[in-house]
Design a protein around this nucleic acid. Structure first.
Length: 256
DNA sequence: ATGTCACATGTTATGTGA
């Protein structure tokens, strides 16, 4: 079973790229972030024609998350609990083929310090609370998405250009580390401990051509799923195509 | 400050967010 996560940066602008990736890699489950489209604009017909069912929570202009699956997803949540006043579409959750799938688009948090960074850290806290509850259920759970954190120095090319960025702040990294420490397995890091692996390359300044990337997209597995982990990687070639998103898909392969 | 995208407004550019 293959589960992938892909920040597509606009499903309207990226639909052809998304469809060719689905056709080529055929993930069983794909979490998408940054739809940048309202619910009614979600291209459900094209997705269906590609062989996928979908649940989504869109939003005009910004954010937006979706879960695509070969088997019918059973929607369990369209928002992260803990703040009824949070209107940003950043979390959706569904049960698919015996796995509970949480699709995450964590706030970017720039500029920091400031209200956007506060929102990022508050969102992280809510995620920690929800994730802890999910672990207590001892179910097969995957939390996949764009966490907007490069967890360590190994997750960013050698540079000082991002030192003031919310993606690498000690508070952001500490929040991610606390989440993982609850008992989650960062699948890519578990299988590739000393490798520089990136999932995002900024559009500016030839960052892709220079392989100046960051690892921002993560797949966290609950203990039961971690036992089934066979392989994990990044579909780097997706980033090199014309009209590409600034992120590449990350994926895991699980036994059965 | 810059670099580069996508999206919205109601341009034929400009602002915003990433």
């Amino acid at each position: 079973m293959r589960i992938a996560s892909f920040n597509i940066n606009g499903i309207k602008a990226r639909l052809p790229r998304l469809l060719e990736w689905l056709e080529r890699e055929k993930p069983d489950i794909a979490c998408l972030q940054e739809l940048k489209a309202a619910d009614a604009e979600f291209p459900v017909d094209a997705i269906r024609k590609a062989g996928y069912r979908a649940v989504w929570r869109g939003q005009k202009t910004w954010n937006g998350v979706a879960i695509l699956a070969r088997k019918e997803p059973i929607l369990t949540r369209t928002a992260l609990p803990g703040d009824a006043g949070d209107t940003q579409s950043r979390y959706i959750e569904a049960a698919i083929d015996g796995v509970l799938v949480g699709c995450i688009y964590l706030p970017n948090g720039n500029p920091q310090p400031g209200p956007k960074f506060d929102y990022k850290l508050a969102w992280f806290k809510r995620l920690q609370g929800h994730a802890r509850k999910l672990l207590r259920e001892q179910m097969p759970v995957v939390l996949a998405g764009d966490y907007n954190v490069a967890p360590t120095e190994l997750d960013i090319y050698p540079t000082t250009s991002w030192d003031d960025d919310a993606l690498v702040q000690p508070a952001s990294r500490a929040a991610y580390a606390r989440l993982v420490k609850q008992g989650w397995t960062d699948a890519l890091r578990a299988l590739h401990q000393d490798e520089r692996i990136y999932t995002f390359w900024h559009y500016m300044r030839n960052r892709w051509q220079r392989n100046a990337g960051l690892r921002l997209d993560h797949i966290l597995l609950s203990p039961i799923l971690a036992e089934r982990l066979q392989d994990a990687g990044v579909d780097r070639e997706v980033r090199g195509r014309t009209d590409a998103s600034d992120h590449a898909p990350v994926w895991v392969r699980l036994k059965r």
